[in-house]
Design a protein around this nucleic acid. Structure first.
Length: 427
RNA sequence: GGAGAGGUGGCAGAGCGGUUGAAUGCACCGGUCUUGAAAACCGGCAAGGGCGAAAGCCCUUCGUGGGUUCAAAUCCCACCCUCUCCGCCA
């Protein structure tokens, strides 16, 4: 959501920012609606003021036993004029609101220009890409080879883009989640949180999934399945004036995530890369505006720590203007090396995305804090990042740890969680 | 799912047709006092919006949306949520 006052004061800057999002200029149109609405609002408020005043006079007159008929007639006259004006004003307000609520966040000036993911900016590459004396398999071959990953069964029970894990592979999912949560809570101060996986429309609107991206979501009668824990976690501060002394708020949650993948038909159809249901450990930070830039770096490094402890090679990219998501001002993607992809040649795949949304979501959800200096309320900044997508981490463990004989060597950090140092085929 | 009670400012809690944007207490902020702190005392303190250079004026909001009335936190209707009891259930 955008600040109408910013648009009033900086229409050209606003249009220039839209252009970076490949959107046509619209400040002129928005401001026309805005000024029409305000003119109407002033007119309405004048009538309301007169009505309120007259009503008080009526009360005073009647208390003294006087005759108020003339005033009552005047109020009634005002009341006949009001509905049309109010309807018109509401219509303008709604048109303004619906326009603003569908526009993406303005990009941070540090975001590089670019059309799509090919133009993201490489920030750093960490870890050595493993070399194999054999052609590495992908996680599908490995998982099925272990007898612990069954896509046909997932399809039988639910349909395409579902899988059933069993035995040590199901345990690996749990181990990864526990390891990630332990690290974020124990080392980085995030508060473990278990939020609802179904939320109402208002909550979905707060973080930006609605109204524009309804088709990407699964819904029930009156609720929506969360596509990420970012949604419930961030909305915890919605409609609140948060005490600035508790900032930054840092929360982490392990949840299932549900996505219809409406726009991805035919993409990543093999394996567990893109499922309708997957689990993720999410990090959310709520900060003072002055802290959000540093917090994004910190959050990204928290996610990176997980990859490092799991001995997984990865790289960090700064997303370009064309690839940065709707609600984000700025985003770092972490891509893990998956040696089994692309016929065993390997490739990097996204495993985490860390974004600073600035005041964009906070304004949508009215998440504020009180500025100690001025006494005024201001919008918070919100950040979210995956730390990490558990399914894709499991894939990475399999593909990077594979041996020629089909067993998987596990990273040291997981040994205690798994009760073993390796995965072997089930009997 | 059924029955009852209730949803008021950061919190607690009055008000139940007019002068109430809302008593009182707590919290918070400023001041007096104090070596300092506490206590006590004095004062301030809802949010959002419009107009205005500013001072300030005005509008809206007492769960949400309608309705009655010259006038609604107060009356009526619907919905949402919370609590208690019953039923069902992990």
């Amino acid at each position: 959501m955008h600040d109408i006052r910013f648009i009033r004061e900086n229409p050209d800057a606003f249009d220039a920012a839209l252009k970076r999002r490949k959107l046509a200029p619209m400040a002129g149109e928005i401001l026309k609606t805005d000024s029409d609405r305000r003119a109407l609002q002033a007119q309405i408020q004048e009538l309301q003021s007169r009505r309120n005043q007259a009503s008080k006079e009526i009360g005073a007159l009647k208390a003294k036993g006087g005759d108020a008929d003339a005033l009552i007639a005047e109020v009634n006259d005002i009341k006949t004029k009001m509905p049309d004006l109010e309807t018109e004003e509401a219509s303008l307000a709604e048109s303004l609101e619906s326009r603003l609520i569908e526009l993406p966040n303005l990009l941070d000036e540090s975001v590089p220009d670019g059309d799509d993911e090919d133009q993201n900016q490489l920030i750093r590459t960490i870890g050595d890409i493993p070399s194999f004396r054999f052609t590495p398999k992908d996680h599908v071959a490995l998982g099925e080879g272990l007898g612990l990953m069954d896509f046909a069964l997932g399809a039988k029970l639910a349909g395409a883009r579902f899988v059933v894990l069993s035995g040590q592979l199901a345990r690996l999912e749990r181990a990864l989640a526990a390891f990630m949560l332990d690290t974020h809570t124990g080392e980085f101060g995030y508060v473990e949180t278990l939020p609802p996986a179904l939320v109402n429309s208002q909550t979905m609107t707060g973080t930006g999934q609605l109204p524009k991206f309804a088709e990407d979501l699964y819904r029930t009668d009156d609720k929506w399945l969360i596509p990420t824990a970012e949604v419930p976690l961030t909305n915890i501060v919605a409609d609140e004036i948060t005490d600035s002394a508790v900032l930054p708020l840092r929360m982490t949650a392990y949840t299932q995530c549900f996505r219809s993948e409406a726009g991805s038909a035919g993409r990543d159809t093999r394996g567990m890369i893109r499922q309708h249901q997957f689990s993720k450990v999410e990090m959310v930070s709520i900060t003072h505006p002055d802290q959000s830039a540093d917090e994004l770096e910190r959050m990204t490094s928290c996610a990176e720590t997980i990859l490092q402890k799991l001995e997984l090679p990865y790289r960090v990219l700064k997303l370009c203007s064309g690839d940065t998501g709707f609600s984000a001002q700025q985003t770092y993607d972490l891509e893990v090396w998956l040696p089994g992809q692309d016929e065993g040649r390997g490739m990097y795949r996204e495993i985490s995305s860390c974004s600073n949304c600035g005041p964009f979501q906070a304004r949508r959800m009215k998440a504020r804090f009180r500025d100690v200096e001025t006494g005024e309320t201001r919008f918070l900044h919100t950040l979210n990042g995956s730390g990490l997508a558990v399914g894709r981490t499991l894939i990475a463990i399999l593909e990077n740890g594979q041996q020629e004989d089909g067993i998987i060597l596990l990273p040291q950090a997981l040994h205690s969680y798994m009760g073993t140092d390796r995965l072997v085929a089930s009997a």
